[in-house]
């Protein structure tokens, strides 16, 4: 099952604007993508409440996972997004 572990790149962490952009992108993917921090329970990446509740800050290690056709693409798209600083003006 395609998996990627990345560090959150946004200055403010995975909340506010970065979380909104990430959740919106996750909702566009054709299958369910999950996100987790450390060994905690994976939560749906398209759930705003669950993603916020991760409390991921800049530099927190998060793991994305998905299954099915195109899962690798979905995981890569979201992982790339997470690594960028989404607080930056051009994001």
């Amino acid at each position: 099952m395609p998996t990627r572990t990345v560090l959150v790149g946004s200055a403010s962490g995975l909340h506010a604007r970065p979380a909104a952009l990430f959740v919106a992108e996750a909702a566009k993917q054709p299958m369910l993508v999950t996100i987790r921090t450390g060994d905690k329970k994976p939560v749906p990446a398209r759930s705003m409440l669950a993603v916020l509740s991760l409390g991921a800050k800049k530099g927190t290690e998060v793991t994305l996972e998905a299954d099915g056709d195109g899962a690798q693409d979905a995981v890569d798209t979201l992982a790339d997004l997470l690594e960028r600083d989404l607080d930056a003006a051009d994001a």
Partner: peptide, 16 residues
């Protein structure tokens, strides 16, 4: 407006 839009995403969250 940004705070309100974030609230909309929270309330529309399927997991809720």
């Amino acid at each position: 407006a940004e705070v309100l839009r974030a609230q909309v995403m929270m309330v529309q969250d399927e997991t809720l």
